[in-house]
Amino acid sequence: MAVTIAKEKWTSKVGEMVLDADSSVKVGGESTLPFLQFEGDIPNRPVLALEVWDLEPVDWPEILKAPFAGVLADPVAWAKKNVEYGADVVALRLMSAHPDFKNASPEDCAATAKAVADAINVPMIITGCGVEEKDAEVLEKVGEALTGKNCLIGCATEKNYKTVTATAMVNGHSVIASSPLDINLSKQLNILMTEMNLPANRIAIDPLVGALGYGIEYAYSIMERARIGALMGDKMLAMPVICFVGQEAWKAKEAKSTDDESPEWGAQERRSILWEVLTTTTFAQAGGSIFVLRHPESVKQVKVHLDKMMESNAY
């Protein structure tokens, strides 16, 4: 008797999101669990973004600042540098809007975003400073300034999603929907946003992941559960997932601690980059589609990994 190969049969797939104005960069669309090409399709490879700030970061380790020497105070030059470094996407963080920093006006932020967008030819993610009320005001202006560019803007939360969603709809952008590692809140937020008539394939889920050593397994489980739900037909969880890995990995003491402080941990440069790379590859296995990183060497290393993982194992 012939042996029947047991393959999982999924009934649904992840929505496909376009990340730029001419539809050349897409994410999502998977009809199988990560990299199991023998059970379904993975039409798009995950994309890697490098962060740009509109304000010189003060607490970044020297090792992280070094590749961007001379451009850290100039978001346009920094963004161009990121493209040179091979970033698929540039992720502009409008940190200057933060009331604790420059408390920059929405108009100033929008001007910066426009200048960066005009200088590069890769897709853009634009996030606010993390203060929900301020981000709503900032993103409203940014969304307007970048009309038609089809950017991914965020982060929309339970508190500010109405303004952010409306801006995205009017100006043709997609939205990052953030909820703090809670699959139920995440699903609910997606429902609320789609009830405003934002198409489901213009939402990226941000589960607010933690880095290696800081709750990575919890985030992994949530992403895995959401993805299985999506493949089984749960449309309100069938969105590509964005992981802000850089900000988490570079917050870890294993990344920040210098050679002198922790000689037993090995050289900081190798260690910190490994921290960012391993956090990313782990979440790629959990189904992440968009990774926002900080160090150019991490981009390089993750690309090697993704090249291998995207080789079809279909049979």
Binding site: I183, N184, L185, K187, Q188, I191, R225, A226, G229, D234, K235, M236, L237
Partner: peptide
Amino acid sequence: KEIYCDSFLKTFRA
């Protein structure tokens, strides 16, 4: 069988 969210009655019917 279904992941909880506050709108679960509505999502079932959608």
